[in-house]
Structure formats: C-alpha cells, structure tokens
Simulated scan of single mutants.
Amino acid sequence: MSEFSQKDRDKFIKLYAGIKVENTQDVNKLSEAINKEWEKRKISFLDNENISMINVFLHSPEDSEVFVGHAGILLQIKNELLFIEKYAPTLPFQVSKFKNRLELKGYLMDRLDNDTSGNGSSKPIIMENNNLIN
C-alpha cells in the first residue's frame, strides 16, 4: 500500500479542517460561511450531474466552528440516488438507495441530528458539493 503524498494530505486537510463561523443556528448563514472558506481554500467541485460529494457539517458553538461529521459520495443512476458511505472505521462501506435528495436528507438527519437543545448548536448542515440541501 502506498502512502499519500504531502500534496494529497494537504488537500485532505483543506477539505476537512474545521471552519470558524459566527455562532448562529441559521444553517443558511453557516452554509454561506462554509462556501466562503472553501473559496479561500481554493476548493471547487467539477460540474457532473451524476456524481457529487455529500458532507454533513456539525456545529460546535463552544469553538465557534463547523466541521465535517460525516461524508459520502452520491451517484445518480437512472431514477435513483445511491449514497456510498463508511459510517465508522470498523464498519464496511455501505450503499443506500434513495428516490430523491429529500429522502437522503431525512436519512442523514435521523442518524446525525442529535438533541442539541440549549447548547446553541445548529441542525446539521448537509452540503452536496458546495450547495446546501434544504
């Protein structure tokens, strides 16, 4: 198995490093902050209607930042969406089928929307490439 180059490690860190944000529960404002930071980091996505990256950002109001809590790849195959993810290091990759992005969002929110009442956290911010999934 070959090791990742320093250039590849740097790309990984740019994509997944936490992002400083204003403490708000407004996911629209938080997604704007994510996009602004990604622009600064020169992160962009190819325009491909059949494959995209899904990142679920979690909000840490104590640190005034958001960070990727989960990620996966979304494939459009005919009239279906396939979501490929690895939920934990000890679990195998899994593929889930969805009719649309609303179903995908529901699935991700069921898994990642912890009760954060009272701590100032936002709901999870689900991004498809650099677009918020509402």
Rank of each mutant, 00 (worst) to 15 (best):
F12Y: 10
V21L: 01
P92K: 09
S2W: 09
E80W: 13
E103F: 13
K78Y: 10
V95C: 11
V66S: 01
L58G: 00
A17N: 05
I54M: 01
D47K: 15
L75I: 12
F12S: 03
I126D: 01
I84F: 10
L112A: 02
M53A: 03
S44Y: 14
L46N: 14
F67L: 03
L58Y: 00
N129H: 12
H70S: 02
N119D: 07
R101E: 14
F93D: 13
L46A: 13
E103T: 10
T116H: 06
K40F: 04
D10L: 12
M127H: 08
V95A: 12
V21K: 00
I43W: 04
G72H: 01
N79D: 14
M109R: 07
P61S: 00
G72M: 03
N35H: 00
V56L: 05
D63C: 05
I84M: 12
I133Y: 14
K7W: 09
K86E: 06
N131K: 09
K11L: 13
K36Q: 05
G72V: 04
F45M: 07
F67I: 01
A33I: 05
K40W: 02
L91M: 14
Q76W: 12
G118H: 03
T24H: 03
D113E: 15
D8S: 06
R101C: 10
V27I: 13
I73H: 05
V56N: 00
S122W: 03
E62M: 12
M127I: 09
N23S: 07
K7L: 12
N114P: 03
F4Y: 13
T116A: 08
R111A: 10
A88M: 07
E3R: 10
G72R: 00
F98E: 04
K123E: 15
D113T: 12
S44H: 14
S44Q: 14
E85T: 15
S52N: 05
S122A: 09
N119I: 10
K7P: 08
L91S: 13
N50R: 13
E37C: 03
I13M: 06
S117M: 06
K14L: 13
S121H: 03
L46G: 14
F67S: 01
M53D: 02
I84C: 11
I73A: 08
Y87S: 11
Q76V: 11
G69R: 01
I34E: 02
V95S: 09
E128Q: 15
L15S: 07
E37P: 01
L104N: 06
L91E: 15
L81A: 07
M109G: 06
F12G: 02
L74P: 01
K78P: 09
N55P: 05
V56E: 00
L82R: 13
E62D: 09
I126A: 05
G118E: 06
D113K: 15
K7E: 13
T116M: 10
N28G: 03
M53F: 04
G18W: 02
E128F: 11
S31L: 01
K7R: 11
S44V: 11
K42R: 14
E65Q: 08
L102Y: 09
S64D: 09
M109T: 07
L108A: 07
K29R: 04
R9G: 06
H70E: 02
N50C: 11
G120K: 04
V27Q: 01
S117R: 07
S64K: 08
E22V: 11
L112F: 00
H59I: 04
E103Q: 15
N131S: 12
I77V: 13
I34L: 04
F83I: 12
S5G: 04
N35F: 02
Q76N: 14
I51E: 15
E62W: 09
